[in-house]
Design a protein around this nucleic acid. Structure first.
Lengths: 165, 165
DNA sequence: CCCATACAGTAAACCAGGTTGTCTATCTTG
DNA sequence: CAAGATAGACAACCTGGTTTACTGTATGGG
């Protein structure tokens, strides 16, 4: 409330409602996943970290590449890597083929996070499928693909929400 | 990619896809609104600010109340208020009934942001209605209300996405 | 009535995660 | 082979959080 102090409501629902519902659904899924991770020995992980882990992936990456995927500078990516290294989720190794690059790989703990996240997201999806039924779920996905057709795996959320751009 | 290096796909779609689509749709709407705001003389505004403006509202608030709405400490709310004051979006006035409280109100510029945001969100909604048709849009809203039934106007996104919790 | 307690706001010190700018070391290429 | 491009690290700074501590102003029970 207190969004439109306008005269009379000419629309049945204000425009901000649907985006907020999208956000709420996203948030519900992410919260479920992080509840799971916290119970599995990974408290301290924040929603943002999910994007980082996905961007590192099982095949590893480098600081520059990570920055590009996350939509932040290589310096910011380097800081993030250092922080995750301190927490034991990633490790850095020299690259024999190019002494400038350092390979950034998930440790066993990091892979555990990725695996558990995937499992938790699948669990959320099946809960949703149970609640809506498979046909409505499929319709939902189709409609969403219509509304926000861009490539799905945009991992540059960290920089998006937050200062500066 | 690189999300599940598992054997064969046993699900038709991985569980993370739908939440990511929700987020993408939310983001598309917010980006459209902020494009609008930027063109109307409000660059520098970030997605986070939308929540803050909504939480202040046309009726004003106080630092403690704002903190509660945004899910952050009163100190963080105070800093945010100070920053918005410097940018000319809010003003503080003493409260004659209670000398401790200071009323925080939107200035004309702040109200302009709120009005334009509402209009831009309505515009996004009508675009979406055009693209999907009113029946599918209504189904979408109903399904979403099923999936994330909580109160819609949770404005505590700033603290949610970001460090510490 | 007054004093203990609760409450609003501010300030300081810190942290996380961004930014620019600069620097070194190492490819890569004309 | 020298010049330029690239990868990473470091420093200084900004924003927006946090905790801890403090001031000033109600408020209510003895």
């Amino acid at each position: 409330m207190a969004v439109r102090a306008g005269p009379a409501m000419s629309e049945p629902r204000p425009g901000f409602e649907l985006p907020l519902r999208f956000f709420a659904a996203f948030r519900a899924a992410v919260d479920a996943v992080h509840d799971d991770l916290a119970r599995a020995g990974h408290p301290h992980l924040r929603p943002m970290h999910g994007f980082v882990f996905q961007a590192i992936g099982t095949r590893g990456t480098t600081a520059v590449e990570l920055g590009a995927r996350l939509g932040v500078t290589k310096q910011a990516a380097g800081k993030t890597i250092a922080a995750l290294e301190r927490q034991g989720y990633v490790e850095r190794a020299p690259n024999p083929a190019d002494a400038r690059r350092k390979a950034v790989r998930l440790t066993a703990a990091g892979r555990d996070v990725l695996d558990r996240s995937a499992a938790a997201f699948d669990r959320v999806r099946s809960e949703w499928a149970d609640r809506l039924g498979p046909d409505r779920l499929a319709a939902l996905e189709a409609d969403l693909a219509d509304l926000a057709p861009g490539e799905l795996l945009r991992l540059d959320a960290p920089g998006w929400f937050g200062p500066d751009r």
